[in-house]
Structure formats: structure tokens, C-alpha cells
Design a protein around this nucleic acid. Structure first.
Lengths: 121, 121
DNA sequence: GCTTGACGACTACAGGCGTAATCGATACAT
DNA sequence: ATGTATCGATTACGCCTGTAGTCGTCAAGC
């Protein structure tokens, strides 16, 4: 459990979080933009299945793949790792960093503001 | 430029961001908690110097190491990567995630609130 | 001067990752 | 029935990473 997922693997997961179950072909088709060959995608699918991040069900001679882990759980874990590692666990400096580089649109700021208001109660 | 720094390497950088220049010995001493051998630390220092993240000045027969990259720049870059990858570039969902898991203390929330207020002008 | 200890350089090596080709089996079309 | 396309499994391979040992050299103490 709690197996780490690499970046390329994560992109594969994204496809399946969006729509599943899918065959290897389908997944590869949706990853056309990456330029990866079909075999590359199959390798990633196998590795993900091996580490328990994907569930497979047989469909004749092939597999249908579906996520076995929650996207939110992965995202939360990664976020926490980063915030711990870079900012001693405090999220404000992270936001400050993003802000400093002009990475925050006013929509982002409004969104954060609303979120904060909500958190305060 | 823009060479990526691995996690172990990052820990070495942390030491030098806190206090520099230092000899390999000194760095290793401050990383005692990791249990790494002296040679391991030296390897990491070499790799960091090779990728331009550290500057070295000769001090007799040995080197003094000092950061050649800004901690803030690294942190900002990593933050952006994560937010892009996991949250489509929008930081609010990240904060929401941290909040959802009870990762935010009321001090954190206050800090964020102050930051937002500042950003709004 | 000779030994010894410390230094950086070089070498090592297993595991993960990105990327992919090949292989053996099977389903399907003819 | 036979050829062909397709599947997953297996193998490949170079790079990065974590972790560390060895080597040649030089400085310092005796």
C-alpha cells in the first residue's frame, strides 16, 4: 500500500480517473499527445497494476483497467509531502510563493478568499 | 540551468542554505540524523556541484561548499510543478485538500487570511 | 623523511523510471 | 485450416538516485 506513483504513471492514472474501465488501446489513444508508443503505455499499465494502483478485470483475452486508488488521496499525499519538505508543513508560504511569481490570477485569489472564509467557521 | 535536484540532494542543500560555506565534513556532521556515511554526503555534494547547484572554493586541499541557487527559486519551481500537475494550476484546490485532511491549524488559516488580504491590493 | 590520516576523484551497484521491442499465444477472417 | 492482427508477458537498456567503497595524493605529525 501507499506505493508511490511516478510522473508518467500519473498521466496514465489521469486518463482512467476521468473515464474507466478502459482497454490498453483506449488508454493509449487518449494519451496520443504524449507521443508514447502503445507498448510504453502497456508497460505503465502493468507497473500500475503490479503496485496495486489499478484493478484489472478480464474481458476475453484482454484486460479492462480501472483505478484502484483515489485521486484525491494521491493528490493529498503528494501535497503534504511537498508542503512538509519545502515549507515545514505550513501552507501559507507555498501560496506566498505562487503569488510572488504572479502565478495567481484574481480568480484564484477570490477562490482562496472564499475558501478561507469557509474554513474559519 | 534549471537542473532538477533530488530529494536527498535537497536535504544537503538545506544544510548549506542555513549556513555556508561549509566543508564536506561539516555538512555531514549536520546530516547526522540521516545516518548517511561521509562518502555518501560527499557524493551528493559532488553531484550538486556538477549540476551547478553548489559553488566550490578551494581551501587548501579541500573545498568549501556554498549554494549557487536560491532556495526560494527552487521552492517556487517545485510548487508550481506540483500545482500544475495535480490541480491544473489552480492553488485553491491544493489548499482545500490540505484543509480537508485537517492539516491546517488555525494559525495557518490566519496566516493565509492575512496573505490574501495583502494580495487583494 | 616516513607514516598516517584526510581529501576529492573515481568506481560500484541495485532499484526505479522512461521508453520500447520481441515473443508466445490466441482470436478472427478468409 | 491457415495466415494475420492483437493481447499480455517478458526482456532490454540507458539514465537517475541512494548509498557507499576504493584509490591516489598530499599535508601534518613524529
Amino acid at each position: 500500500m501507499a506505493e508511490r506513483i511516478s510522473e508518467a504513471e500519473f498521466q496514465v492514472m489521469e486518463v482512467l480517473w476521468r473515464d474507466s474501465p478502459l482497454t490498453a488501446q483506449d488508454v493509449a489513444a487518449r494519451l496520443e499527445a504524449t507521443g508514447w508508443s502503445l507498448t510504453t503505455v502497456k508497460t505503465l499499465l502493468s507497473r500500475l497494476a503490479a503496485k496495486g494502483a489499478l484493478a484489472t478485470t478480464e474481458d476475453g483475452r484482454r484486460y479492462l483497467y480501472a483505478p484502484a486508488v483515489d485521486r484525491a488521496a494521491i493528490a493529498a499525499g503528494e501535497s503534504r509531502r511537498l508542503v512538509d519538505r519545502l515549507f515545514g508543513g505550513r501552507p501559507a508560504p507555498l501560496v506566498a510563493h505562487l503569488a510572488e511569481r504572479g502565478e495567481l490570477s484574481s480568480a484564484d485569489i477570490a477562490e482562496l478568499e472564499a475558501l478561507i472564509r469557509e474554513l474559519k467557521q
